[in-house]
Design a protein around this nucleic acid. Structure first.
Length: 559
RNA sequence: UGGGACGUGGCCAAGUUGGUUAAGGCACGGGGUUUUGAUCCCCGCAUUCGCAGGUUCAAGUCCUGCCGUCCCAGCCA
């Protein structure tokens, strides 16, 4: 295995946005670049956001630029500070540090001034049609809209009304400020879009200073310009907004004009990826919270044990394009395995214990064996593993009537105990129901790891834990949250109906004591990668999350 | 039936100003190593770039037409 751990220095995948940046830098359009990640603090970040975060931060890093974190907090009805804090934590966990921490609300006064500029120039007016009426006047996809009766309202009148809207003189919905563009535009976004609305509610950060709040299309482009953003990256659904983005900047007295570039958002199969729907799962109690390890949120992935490096590698791997695609969940899981395979120390844990008695092992004694923490990386050192007369193996590692090519323990057969020695089946004991309760074996003392005879080959190697030294732990096994590739495909049914009933199962495991002294992630050999649950695990009652299983070509063959 | 965008192997995705044999990853198949049926290592895997015409000595790359998919009619972002 390569000792080069600089996975950050992986060859960058070429993509169109990077090419634009390269061109802008070499043409002299920009001396340096600046990007931004602009979340609305109304929910938790998910893996889709991670794609955008990685894109913005990595692009800036690659070209020695900067990235701002900007909260797009222009709608106080939906936003909360707790979300902002969680978002900051998630971005840091992913491994990024923003240059400036900004808020659209920091610019409210400037937005207002620019709006006044627009009105003064006859390019915006105060509307008093209701929302319903505005919709009627807007026309349809195939029919042009009609001008509002208030479209030619004198500027002085609009100015006066707008000022009074600000101070809270009018109820919500009474007026709205509209940009005067083109009611007949084939692009509906350009049919005199609203740029300010009245909301008589306090804002998380500005308190009751304002009674009007700017709309996204007005605030976003100006925020970008104020911050000196050079490349404003967003998702495909904003393509229709770009002419408006450009219109606003072209019609106010601001020099900077960032370039909006759209790319396809990430879609993963067997999951949903919208804050609204994830919030629904949380609110309806279908999951235990935003950080429930089954969720596609970054908080959930952190809790489940996903290394941030795996997510960064994944983001790089999937590329950046304008074509919409659905990435198999397995691709993400592979990146998690790849990362953990290199970094996670090994241990043994039995999820479904079956007792084995080693007949020729002295009763009451413990032998401490030495085992590598990692089979390929000696720098991780060794650990001591205790073995006793009674041990547990995985119930699935014994078959009374073995199928063809079954390499594990079977009547009359031999297997190697990982890191220990070869044992030979002697007899099995069943209870009154016919269930196997114990298997008796004999160990071959010449095959102890490290001894000359230890290289003797047997087909199978299985993991085990000393009955006396093993520690009981609750293990939580996760599977995909939904049991259909696209939970939203069936318009007749709610996506909640497709939740996989087996997405969470629990087991009482017996695990090797060394895991309690180790780091965050470890591998139970032959089983999967695990970590302690950050919320529910205690010293008395350890709780382990299975981050991801190991690849299993044997199980796959059985399917 | 308006406008915007996309369409390269099962899934992603590179493809310089058109110039030979269409990167790479995942998945899949086969083989090797292995005290994890893990990892790792080999090998294989698109005569073809949504379709149909056209321009050219030469087209995935240019032109025309067609087909398919996605987005837009919030005082959400």
């Amino acid at each position: 295995m390569s000792t080069d751990s600089s996975t950050d220095e992986k060859t960058k995948v070429s993509h169109f946005i990077r090419n634009i940046v390269i061109a802008d830098l070499s043409s002299g359009k920009h001396q340096s670049i600046k990007t931004r990640f602009p979340p609305e603090p109304n929910g938790y970040l998910h893996i889709g956001h991670a794609k955008a975060i990685c894109l913005n931060f990595e692009l800036a890093r690659e070209f020695s630029g900067l990235t701002n974190l900007r909260f797009d907090d222009t709608n106080p009805a939906k936003e909360e500070e707790v979300y902002a804090r969680a978002i900051e934590a998630d971005i840091r966990w992913l491994g990024y540090q923003w240059d400036e921490l900004c808020h659209a609300s920091d610019y409210f006064e400037r937005f207002y001034d620019y709006a006044v500029e627009l009105i003064t120039a006859g390019k915006a007016y105060v509307e008093e049609l209701s929302a319903d009426e505005m919709r009627e006047y807007r026309g349809t996809l195939t029919e042009a809209g009609r001008p509002s009766p208030w479209r030619e309202r004198p500027q002085e009148e609009s100015l006066d009304l707008f000022a009074r809207m600000r101070t809270g003189e009018f109820p919500d919905g009474a007026y709205v400020l509209r940009a005067k563009i083109d009611m007949a535009s084939p692009n509906i976004k350009m049919r005199d879009p609203a740029i300010y609305r009245i909301r008589n509610i306090p804002h998380q950060r500005t308190g009751d200073a304002w009674h009007i709040y700017p709309m996204y299309d007005f605030a976003h482009c100006i925020s970008d310009a104020i911050e000196g953003i050079t490349h404003s990256l967003c998702t495909l659904e904003f393509e229709d907004h770009r002419p408006l983005y450009d219109w606003v900047l072209d019609n106010i007295s601001i020099a900077a004009h960032p370039q909006q570039i759209e790319f396809a958002r990430l879609n993963l199969d067997y999951t949903v990826m919208s804050k609204r729907r994830l919030k629904l799962l949380v609110d309806e109690g279908l999951v235990d919270g935003w950080d429930d390890p089954r969720m596609p949120t970054l908080a959930a992935m952190r809790r489940r044990g996903y290394p941030p490096q795996a997510i960064r590698n994944f983001a790089e791997l999937i590329g950046v394009t304008k074509s919409e695609s659905i990435i198999p969940l397995g691709v993400l899981e592979n990146e998690v395995r790849n990362e953990l395979n290199q970094t996670a120390p090994r241990a043994m844990g039995v999820l479904d214990p079956l007792k084995i008695v080693l007949l020729n092992f002295p009763e009451g004694e413990t032998e401490w064996l030495e085992a590598a923490r990692h089979p390929q990386d000696e720098s991780m050192g060794k650990r001591k593993v205790p073995i006793t007369r009674e041990i547990y193996i995985e119930r699935g590692d014994f078959m009374e009537e073995p199928v063809r090519k079954y390499f594990r323990l079977k009547p009359g057969g031999e297997v190697r105990l990982r890191n220990a020695f070869i044992i030979k089946f002697v007899e099995l004991m069943k209870d009154e129901n016919g269930e196997i309760v114990e298997i008796r074996c004999e160990l071959d003392p010449q095959t102890r790891s490290g001894m000359p005879e230890s290289n003797r080959r047997v087909k199978g190697t299985i993991h085990w834990v000393s009955a006396e030294h093993g520690v009981a732990a609750e293990v939580r096994l996760y599977d995909r949250l939904f049991n259909v590739e696209n939970p939203l495909a069936d318009k007749q049914r709610d996506f909640q109906e497709f939740i996989n009933p087996d997405c969470l199962s629990k087991a009482q495991a017996i695990v090797e004591p060394s895991v309690f002294a180790g780091g965050e992630n470890f591998q139970f050999e032959r089983v999967g990668y695990f970590c302690f649950d950050s919320k529910d695990s205690t010293a008395d009652k350890p709780v382990l999350n299975r981050t991801v299983s190991l690849r299993d070509s044997w199980a796959k063959r059985g399917q």
